[in-house]
Design a protein around this nucleic acid. Sequence first.
DNA 1: TTGAAAGCGCTAACAC
DNA 2: GTGTTAGCGCTTTCAA
Lengths: 355, 355
Amino acid sequence: MQKSTADSSHKTKTAPLTIKDIAQELGVSATTVSRVLAGKAKEHRISDETAKQVIELSKRKNFTPNAIARGLRLLKTHTIGLLIPDISNPFFAGLARNVTEGLHRHGYSIILCDSQDDLAMERQLLDLLWSRQVDGMIIAPVGQQASHVADLARMPKPVVMVDRFFSDLKIPYVSSDNFLGAKQAMECFFENGHRKIACLKGLSGSAPAEERLRGYRQALSQHGLEVDESLIRGDAFGEQSGYVETKLLLKRRRDFTGIFAMSNLIASGALTALEEEGVRVPEDISLIAFDEQPYLSHFNPPLTTIAQPVERIGDTVVKILLSQMKSPDQPQTEGILLPTSLVRRKSVARIGPAV
Amino acid sequence: MQKSTADSSHKTKTAPLTIKDIAQELGVSATTVSRVLAGKAKEHRISDETAKQVIELSKRKNFTPNAIARGLRLLKTHTIGLLIPDISNPFFAGLARNVTEGLHRHGYSIILCDSQDDLAMERQLLDLLWSRQVDGMIIAPVGQQASHVADLARMPKPVVMVDRFFSDLKIPYVSSDNFLGAKQAMECFFENGHRKIACLKGLSGSAPAEERLRGYRQALSQHGLEVDESLIRGDAFGEQSGYVETKLLLKRRRDFTGIFAMSNLIASGALTALEEEGVRVPEDISLIAFDEQPYLSHFNPPLTTIAQPVERIGDTVVKILLSQMKSPDQPQTEGILLPTSLVRRKSVARIGPAV
DNA sequence: TTGAAAGCGCTAACAC
DNA sequence: GTGTTAGCGCTTTCAA
């Protein structure tokens, strides 16, 4: 009778219920309540009578055990940290949804951290997640610097990287095969007779940007085409970058017939610039963008894109993380690259015989 | 001497550091370390020497205090629950970003929950957040049933609703003025001579859908137009719904000249259907959608939309929540409705004199 | 079939 | 200036 008595409807500061309150009211011990609520009634041969009462009262009082206290005791929080560069980027939003759902199904909650592509912020958030005793982490690091991420490999909790990764880090990763994706885009250009293609790059140093760039270069070389370095521009995955760099690029609009945009945000910015300058797509310039979204089919023109298998990526990340948490000492998967695919629409014009 | 020595048992990974370890190594008490790390060195007149050492060693060992333990002790977790129906919906993704950032700046982390517009899931997630001792919650409830949400009003922690709300619930809310938004859309139709306008509705029972519907109806009435109930269709905010209902609607395509879509996802689905049926926008049918996104300007045709002030909504929600947490007993804001605005583009055709 | 007690890592009260 | 002690709410030996 210490803190309970009346817990009825006014919103004043009722101290939250505890397992003790329930125990007291029932005249049993906290231990018993704990066991029942943890589903270990049978295991401890607690009488059906007692068990029923506990469950009954807990439900009636709307009591749920304090997960924080449990976490402290068990040294396990059933919480996963999710660190991504920008939740408002549809690619990451889709990933977050998938991952959140998959993890929830296995009893884990997720703490969402948005680094805004800022390295200092990322470091801070990593510490934060760490201090919150997450049982594991899924991170898409900014991707330009590995040192602080490398520390994670030493931590006693599993970590998996997604989208952005460092392949030399002993931390498993899951990503699209960005190299392949870029080549698919380039092949589409070549088929349609293009041979001078500009590249609107994403964040320098990040694995996706670098791999896509590598694919871009190699595709060109394999077709005996020279890569014109001045046609490679930009340094961020956002709309702004696409807009600005396209404006700049357009000063040399006779030097290329196609643009390969490393994200659909970039492509969107590019489209704005193109329109402002009166350049028609695809009549004057063709365009292919990374990242598929259904609504891209309603663009003018419908955008040809490289689709990433977002759901498979999410599922795979979750699977790896769960398995690492289950058996922490098993050998780690090195890295998994999932194939992209070309979605042909109308933003590439045929301008000559295939090259 | 209590827990050391046994360190080499059978744990492959090293046990996480604690405040005690730091204290021991420095020959001071845990209290001192705690105080220094909590920035209370001055307050307790701890010698600069000692303070420096503590900070130094903590940094060197990469130690961060266990936030779980602290949370248990302080009965405050610095964690906020964010419950939304679908993080992959750009509106909510934008909101999440804004809220996450704003809260982070004040030292709070967020646990992200995606209810997938499912009532049972929502209930479960609410319990979960509760059990995790969040200091407050921001929720966009599914919105069709208030009972379980009503319970939250009784909880000793602040809650604020966003987007979806129940106005009779004694829980503060922040949302766009959906009624106004719908009227803005309708006025735009009227100005261009439309008088028969179909409505692609969002989730029935949810505040946004109902308010927008109310605006739709009132606008019609105010212009002396009758509302044709059979022109009001659909029951979800997603793309699917937009597609299917438009297909159905098209059987009566002579009965209307414009479509008011309650979300841009719905509009996207509608566009697909329209295209499949060979109906041109805006020549044959005009279209206005709720929810603005920059890329909508690249649609064919560029979409006329109703823009919600997402950032202001996010900022306001955060402000209210923070202030409630600061002084829980102050009178609560009832509810705040922020004005929407019309973004005129090209999806509405002039078909006659203004009505 | 059930309980008492110890302790997870931290901090606030109260010493000295 | 710094340390000792108690306890946040829970689970888990160990005991009965």
